[in-house]
Design a binder for these strands. Structure first.
Length: 422
DNA sequence: TCGACTGGCACCTTTGAATGGT
DNA sequence: AACCATTCAAAGGTGCCAGTCG
């Protein structure tokens, strides 16, 4: 299986300066947005394609003297969300037919967001990850074969206001929605429009004829992102029928059930971000490699801490080395007796995203899921949970502070729980 | 005091319904 | 009746900026 980032030259032009993505309370699209093409899928097998964003490091940044510099430790990670491409699940032939667009993926800084947007912290760096999961439906995603792809040039700093004016200019130059801010000689269109207020009809007419081409415009040497007006963007569907059905079944928003839980798609067990504390953007820190992970979601019956994750170094330029820390990933699963479930249920109802009140001074961010695929909200009856509770001071390793969790929790990890979570 | 954030604004694109012509 | 092209308004995506907040 191969994945290629479309318009990587445009991404690189942003990356060279230090990509920034605006995040807003209501959600903001990315620009450039993620667009990938895949090959090597089994044409008649069904796949889910997903995206999530992982912190690049454990730092918060500030823009100072025309450059990014570390401004302290990262804030506690907000609820972790995974964006499922709305075509999912679809046949391999469908995914390989044309590039896969994540145009409508939105980023927000609202930790209480109910619309399924990916929640990020401002002034933190993130790296998008693309997951290809071979699964017939959401119920089997949990333990299906998957591969994860990462493109270093897509990393970015989340901001509420652009810091680097060069980034602002690049965005204005290439994003059609920002056309109104482009310069035209000494005056931009905004100024011209103000003049045309005396004669709005002629101004509108002029715009209608001259600004017709609905494409991403690229100046100089930056490639264009083509726009096909005849293509019905699959993103407009927003959710697959499967997801909608699940939502209807549960009388909840699909996002609330599927994506809201703040769970990582895959076990990022020993991701160690602490070694990458550096200025962003580094002047020459662009890494030309691609990373790719291989794995299998654990069997529901597997309760061991280790699974058969594999990774290998790719020979191609598009798929290069796998970070060493990804080679082994713990997969803790625990079975709880009734008293433990009771304690966990109490914790779920009182402490999600907050602190364990009975452990003052030990702020926690809690995530809980149920292992049984059909258990969903009644999963307590199944008696099997996968859970992670970790300090807000991201990242650990940190001695696990909780009293009722897997022994492997000392190894900092965020467990693979998607999508059965709450 | 200052940096981060928010909401409103003007400008723009996108979308889909309505309309008319072939 | 079906198809296509055009028009139009509404919805929504942009960056900017003044004000607010911590």
């Amino acid at each position: 299986m191969r994945m290629k980032l479309e318009y990587s030259e445009l991404w690189k032009s942003f990356h060279d300066i230090g990509t920034e993505m605006v995040i807003t309370k209501s959600g903001r699209r990315m620009f450039p947005y993620c667009n990938v093409s895949v090959s090597g899928l089994v044409p008649y097998a069904k796949y889910f394609i997903m995206v999530d964003m992982v912190p690049v490091d454990n730092s918060r940044y500030k823009w100072n003297n025309e450059q990014w510099e570390v401004a302290g430790k990262a804030e506690p990670q907000p609820p972790f969300r995974t964006y499922i491409h709305p075509d999912s699940p679809a046949l391999g032939s469908h995914w390989m037919k044309q590039p896969i667009s994540f145009l409508k993926l939105k980023l927000t800084n609202n930790p209480l967001d109910q619309r399924g947007h990916i929640i990020l912290h401002s002034m933190h760096r993130y790296q998008p990850r693309f997951h290809v999961v071979q699964a017939d439906d959401l119920y089997s995603v949990r333990w299906s074969v998957f591969q994860t792809f990462t493109f270093p040039e897509t990393s970015f700093t989340a901001v509420t206001v652009y810091q680097n004016t060069k980034i602002t200019k690049l965005k204005i130059d290439h994003n059609p929605f920002a056309k109104g801010f482009r310069e035209e000689g000494t005056h931009n269109k905004r100024h011209r429009a103000q003049k045309n207020q005396l004669c709005p009809e002629s101004a509108a007419k002029k715009l209608k004829t001259s600004d017709k081409e609905p494409e991403f415009e690229c100046f100089q040497d930056v490639p264009r992102l083509p726009y096909d007006p005849h293509r019905k963007d699959p993103d407009t569907l927003m959710l697959s029928n499967m997801t909608k059905e699940m939502a209807q079944d549960s009388h909840m928003s699909p996002w609330e059930e599927v994506q809201d839980p703040g769970q990582s798609l895959h076990n990022e067990g020993v991701m160690d971000y602490t070694n990458s504390e550096q200025l962003v953007p580094g002047q020459s820190n662009y890494q030309s490699h691609r990373t790719q992970e291989f794995g299998r979601m654990p069997s529901p019956s597997c309760t061991d801490s280790q699974t058969d994750y594999q990774a290998f170094e790719s020979k191609s330029n598009d798929m290069a080395t796998v970070p060493e820390q990804m080679l082994s990933r713990p997969q803790p699963t625990i079975s709880l007796d009734s008293s433990q479930r009771k304690a966990l249920d109490f914790s779920m109802s009182t402490n999600i995203g907050g602190c364990l009140k009975d452990r003052p001074g030990m702020p926690l961010y809690s995530q809980y899921t149920m292992e049984q695929p059909l258990g969903l909200w009644s999963g307590a009856l199944a008696g099997q949970y996968t859970t992670s509770v970790y300090p807000q001071s991201h990242p650990p390793p940190h001695p696990h502070p909780s009293g009722y969790h897997h022994s492997n929790m000392a190894e900092w990890s965020q467990y693979s729980l998607f999508p059965y979570s709450c």
